[in-house]
Computed example of a mutant assay.
Amino acid sequence: MNDVESPIDLRNLKDALEWQETANVKRPWRKDFFDYYVDLIRPRSSDQCQILELGSGPGFLTQHLLSQLPNIEYTAFDFSAVMHQLAQEKLHASEKTRATYVVGSFKDAHWQNTLSQKYDFIIIHQALHELRHKRYAIEFHKTIRSLLKPNGCYLVCDHLCAPHAMQNDQLYMNKQEHLQALQQAAFKQIKIPLEIQGLCLFEMNVI
């Protein structure tokens, strides 16, 4: 099975700007997920809290969390330097001191070696499908386990393959496929705290 080619190149400024301008317009309910992350993280962020976002894009989530949670340290990982540039433009000076930007692709072998620590929370929001085929999901989730601290939390939000959502069943997974991939990566007690308009959040704690 071949990978599913992307119709856009988010390393290109024009494509990145178009994605930035339309993402929240197309799906205004993205903010409901962002607010859920804030409420989840806040009780555990009284001391320094390390957060990793994979596929961080133009920094909407980065800015939202840094502005709401003053004690977090944020690592944004994305394959597009252009996206990182757009993301940094959204932050105040004090927020920039708590943000680290890493250029890398989670499709590359040993991509996790570019990260030098473990994290309390790892979030991948609307980017899991950038693996470009669902068959890679299990190994990806296994890699995430190695990056989480004890009692760390993994948050996966992506489009479902469903009649009311996405139709490409090679790129996107249905709800059961998501659950099976996470279970095969040894995640347990999987929650689905939020699902809106085909966008579904899976929440796992390392026990």
Rank of each mutant, 00 (worst) to 15 (best):
L128V: 12
D108N: 15
L66K: 00
D47P: 03
R11I: 02
Y37K: 07
G57M: 07
K107D: 09
Q126A: 11
L13I: 15
Y172E: 02
I196W: 04
N168W: 05
Q85S: 11
A185E: 02
P28R: 06
K96R: 04
A185M: 02
L148Q: 09
S146Q: 06
N12E: 14
N71A: 08
P7D: 10
P58S: 12
L155W: 04
F34M: 08
L65G: 02
Q68P: 03
T114H: 15
S146G: 12
Q197V: 07
G55Y: 00
Q50G: 02
A81D: 15
E53K: 03
D32I: 08
I207A: 13
S46E: 15
S94M: 01
A99G: 07
D39M: 13
P43F: 10
I72Q: 02
S67Q: 04
R27E: 10
N2T: 12
Q20F: 10
W19H: 09
H178N: 07
T100M: 04
I124L: 12
M204T: 03
L201N: 01
L61K: 00
D39C: 14
Q112K: 07
R145K: 12
C161T: 08
D47E: 15
L194A: 11
H92E: 01
T143W: 10
Y119P: 02
Q85V: 04
I51D: 02
M166L: 09
F202I: 05
T62V: 00
S146M: 04
Y136H: 14
K96L: 00
Q184L: 10
S67C: 05
Q189G: 07
Y119K: 02
L61A: 01
Q88N: 15
C49W: 00
H129T: 04
K134C: 04
L155D: 09
D32Y: 13
L115M: 09
V156P: 03
I51M: 10
L179S: 08
Q48E: 13
L61H: 03
F187T: 05
R42G: 00
E130M: 10
T75N: 03
C157P: 06
R27N: 13
L147C: 12
P7F: 08
K149T: 15
